[in-house]
Simulated scan of single mutants.
Amino acid sequence: MSDTTAAETANTGPLIYRQSIWTRTTHWIWAICLFFLLLSGLQIFNAHPALYIGQQSGFEFENAILEIGAFNTPDGPRGRTTIFGQQFDTTGVLGMSGSAERPSFVGFPAAVTIPSFRDLGTGRVIHFFFAWLFVGTMFVWFLASFINGHIKRDILVRPVDLKGVPRDVAEHATLKFKHGRSYGPLQRIAYFGVFFILFPLIVLTGLTMSPGMNAAWPWLLDLFGGRQTARTIHFGVMLLLVTFFVVHIIMVLAAGPINALRSMITGWYRASPGTPSSEGDRP
């Protein structure tokens, strides 16, 4: 290696092989699955845009915690969203969207649903297809990550990670990112929460809403307090996953999108200066 190349490597940090083929492949399959699951899920939600807590729902019950719809006013129809009894005018976004000449009275607008028109049957077919693809990919990821040590090395939260949270928060707040061989404390906590809490929750609550699974695994109804409560939890977990995705994209852009994309496409990641170029070089 020439002196110039050595100096450049010292200033930029070494290229390290950070993401295995299993991590990269499942990452992109999940991204596709979650996109279709979200938009087809909103299509299904529009069939009855309300969420409840409890075993049952209906006109004689007052257990709704979220309702999206439209109502008439002296000035014409308006969109309205009710959350825990508090009403909000959401005309143009929720409950009523589209142009004034051709309004659409649905929970979520057509622009964020698959299909864009009202078709519950097609929405359910798309949702279930990608749901099972999601579950299969999750099984492959857990198996491969357990065998190659990815879970232990990068995902499980250790006591030292909890101690490092304040420092990691300060570094993220000032956009001083450290690119190492493994994930930082905030990354570990976030990914642990996604892989071991949110993913299992969204799968199990999805199964709880299935009459077939209710017959095979009736304990799911007891675990989540009924099908309606499971539906509400399912919706809430979806919102948390969307929040995670937004924050994830912001962090990728702030920390260096080219480096992150290279890592998730080729596996190779440019680490910070001073990072050992191999496991054996660690002090």
Rank of each mutant, 00 (worst) to 15 (best):
A7W: 07
Y17D: 06
S20G: 11
I21Y: 02
R24V: 00
W30S: 09
L34A: 11
L38N: 13
L39Q: 05
S40A: 14
L42D: 11
A47Q: 11
Q55G: 00
E60L: 12
E62R: 08
I65N: 09
N72T: 12
G79V: 02
R80N: 04
I83T: 06
Q86K: 12
T91F: 03
G92T: 04
G98W: 09
R102H: 15
P103I: 03
G107S: 08
P109D: 04
I114L: 14
R118A: 14
R118I: 14
R118H: 11
G121R: 13
R124N: 11
V125H: 08
F128H: 07
A131C: 04
M138L: 09
M138Y: 14
F142G: 05
N148V: 08
K152P: 06
K152V: 14
D154H: 05
L156W: 15
L156A: 10
K163F: 12
P166C: 09
P166A: 10
R167V: 08
D168Y: 01
V169P: 08
V169G: 05
H172L: 10
L175N: 09
G184E: 03
P185V: 02
L186N: 00
R188V: 00
I189Q: 02
F195K: 00
L201N: 02
V203F: 03
G206Q: 09
T208M: 07
W217M: 13
D222E: 11
D222G: 08
L223W: 02
G226R: 06
T229I: 05
T229Y: 06
R231G: 02
H234L: 06
L240G: 07
V246W: 04
V246K: 02
H248Q: 07
L261M: 14
R262N: 15
G274Y: 01
S277P: 07
E279N: 10
G280T: 07
